[in-house]
Amino acid sequence: MPASPFPRPLGPGGPLVPPLALGSWNTWDRMSEDEAVAMIHAAVAGDAGFFDVAYYNMGPHAENSKTDILFGQALRASGVARDEIVLCGKLWLWDWPAQGFRAQLEESLERAGLDRFDAVVVGDYRDAPDLDRLVADVGELIADGLFDVWGINNWVVGDTHAAFAAAERAGVAAPTFAQLKYSIVRRSMAEGEPYGELFRAGRLALQASDVFEGGILAGNLVPQRKIGADVGGIRERIVAAAPEVARVAAELDATPAQLALAFCLAYPPTANVLFGASRPAQLEGNLAAMRLAAEHGDAVRAAVAGLWLDREVAADGTW
């Protein structure tokens, strides 16, 4: 049996993190507290004890605004110790700097009943932010012990380079990981040359997100809930490709969801894969993806090599 490639660090100087990470978008609000407690226990036991505790009090996702409160309640009820898990918060740019990062972070921590995160992701944007001010604000929060490392979420790669330069000028921490859309069918941003160069150079690790394409690649061809943006306008082609994903998964004695996760885990820059689960059984079924990736990662990626659907989309985040 091949040696496990996990855990991997969350970028240069970052902590070793569980290979699977649970998101909070449309999850904790779709289960009872008992189910949420069971989910947390299953995640910790199954090497998926990385929780994205997003702050959804603003912007286009505000209807999901209670997620951090619900997660915090379930975590306290679970009895799981803080040092058994990794927590990642989110800072949004929709109303920044009018609503500063510190105010966002402190409110999110208070709502969840926490005193700090381990990592934070700075969200995407409509217009390029003032990066000198941004890295200074983030650096101040790190200096105050509110989190240790930070990453970016679907940024144009030129702005990521500018953040590195701004951090060096200011003598503060640069981003160590990139949370990017990445799946069997949508690969250009994570595998394209601009971000690929940063991954190969060891400047960033990848946190893969949107790996199920809103559930389509996991078998739900007509999602009944709001799902992520269709970057590049390829969703109809993704729906058409889903049966082939299911066929390949069956040949590997896996579920489509396990195949989708294993595909991302088998990409060497991947530190972990962020996905949503609203029932403990979903999570427990998906845990087998780690073994599939460790034992058959090359075969998984070869089997779906022809399903890369966004090759024509720019890889630098400009789409």
Score class of each variant (00 low, 15 high):
M31E: 03
A45F: 10
A81E: 10
R111C: 04
I85P: 07
T318M: 07
A288F: 08
P18K: 11
L91A: 01
A74G: 04
V156G: 08
E312H: 03
L274I: 07
D83W: 12
W96H: 07
A271E: 03
V211C: 12
A205M: 08
R200Y: 03
E193K: 15
A293N: 06
P223R: 10
D144R: 14
G171A: 09
P15Q: 14
L307S: 13
Y267L: 11
L87S: 03
V172F: 09
A242S: 11
W25P: 03
G202S: 06
A201K: 14
R187Q: 14
Q224M: 15
R186M: 12
H161E: 11
Q73P: 09
A293H: 06
P19H: 11
D52S: 01
A208Y: 04
W319R: 08
I238N: 06
L307Q: 00
G49Y: 08
A289I: 09
R111Y: 04
A241S: 13
A293W: 05
H161T: 15
F147T: 14
S108F: 02
K226D: 06
G14V: 02
N286I: 05
L259F: 07
R133W: 08
G72A: 13
R200A: 14
T27R: 02
D68A: 15
P5V: 08
A205G: 14
G139E: 02
P15W: 03
A305R: 11
A314C: 01
L309A: 07
R111W: 05
D253G: 00
G171T: 12
V37R: 01
V273T: 05
A178M: 06
P129W: 12
L204H: 09
D137F: 02
G23I: 00
L10H: 12
W94K: 01
W308E: 06
E193D: 15
A81H: 08
L217P: 03
P2L: 11
S278N: 10
K66M: 11
L70V: 00
G214R: 09
A38V: 06
